[in-house]
Design a protein around this nucleic acid. Structure first.
Length: 275
DNA sequence: CACTCTACCTGTGCGC
DNA sequence: TGCGCACAGGTAGAGT
């Protein structure tokens, strides 16, 4: 389940790895599953992409944004969201298309950029301006300032868990890091954002930043037997019934806004939650 | 504005 | 062993 740290890890490996994607030119496009471009008309994709050269790679929330230089048309952006199970990686062009391969871009030097996604949730866009795809998202959760975060919190009257998951509030947090951040902040997931005291808002901001920074440094999360992008060890996500690593109380699991939500009932006191 | 539900998908793991 | 089914979750969109 790629969230901000996992997406950042993909950006870094494609940009800073050897070989780097930056500088490579698209020679041809294999539209293995055209639906990946939905709702764009897939017929138009190859003619837009062929001849374009990868110039830069960035991350906006959970989106990967590839800036391309295209002969005769200037800049173009290829934008990818991995959603639940998408993976993006460089392979030798001769590598076989696999069962879950959805898109392959044939590049210079016998390389190919592959997008594999068993669940078909992941999506790819082409745009002259990435804002047409990512526009409206909140500030990046890795870099948002305390002042802006606190002001945004006060502007809503919602439970903290669904608020953190809302990409229009802050961008980049998913179910794993929402639960981990609330645990580190010592805040119950049903705490109402509008009633947060200044020190609680500070704790939450600090927790989000430190959790995400540690997870980025670790190359993403390592969730026992489920998900293994990197080596970040979770405290609550997926640990229902297991002892809290701080106090030993069994971790609780509830549903909040249709989402599995994990927390320590001792370390994360109900506070100002309603009901 | 806040919420809930549904749809989109398929691999996994459970109970029987 | 095998079957059926709940479950996992990011996001959009519709409905309450």
């Amino acid at each position: 389940m790629p969230e901000l740290p996992e997406v950042e890890s993909v950006v870094r490996s494609l940009r800073d790895g050897s070989p780097s994607l930056v500088g490579l030119r698209v020679r041809s496009v294999d539209m293995v599953w055209p639906g990946v471009f939905s709702p764009l008309l897939p017929d138009l994709v190859p003619s837009h992409l062929e001849g374009c050269r990868f110039a830069a790679i960035a991350r906006l929330g959970k989106y990967l944004v590839f800036a391309l230089d295209c002969p005769g048309r200037g800049s173009l952006f290829l934008i990818v969201h991995l959603r639940m199970t998408g993976r993006l990686f460089l392979v030798p062009e001769s590598a076989a298309i696999e069962r879950h391969t959805r898109l392959a871009l044939m590049l210079d030097h016998g390389l190919a950029l592959r997008f594999d996604d068993p669940r078909k949730f992941g999506r790819v866009w082409l745009a002259d301006d990435p804002e047409t795809v990512t526009g409206g998202m909140g500030p990046d959760s890795l870099t948002v300032s305390l002042e802006e975060f606190a002001a945004r919190l006060a502007g809503h009257r919602r439970h903290l868990k669904p608020l953190l998951l809302d990409q229009y509030f802050v961008a980049g947090i998913g179910n794993i890091y929402a639960d981990e951040s609330l645990f580190r902040a010592g805040l119950h997931p049903l705490t109402n954002s509008a009633g947060l005291k200044p020190d609680e808002a500070l704790r939450l901001h600090t927790a989000i930043r430190s959790v995400l920074e540690e997870a980025v440094a670790a190359g993403g999360a390592n969730i026992d037997g489920v998900f293994k992008a990197g080596s970040f060890i979770v405290n609550v996500y997926g640990r229902a019934g297991a002892p809290c690593r701080v106090c030993g109380t069994p971790i609780s699991k509830i549903r909040v806004g249709q989402r599995g939500t994990h927390f320590c009932p001792h370390c994360q006191l109900p506070g100002n939650m309603e009901a």
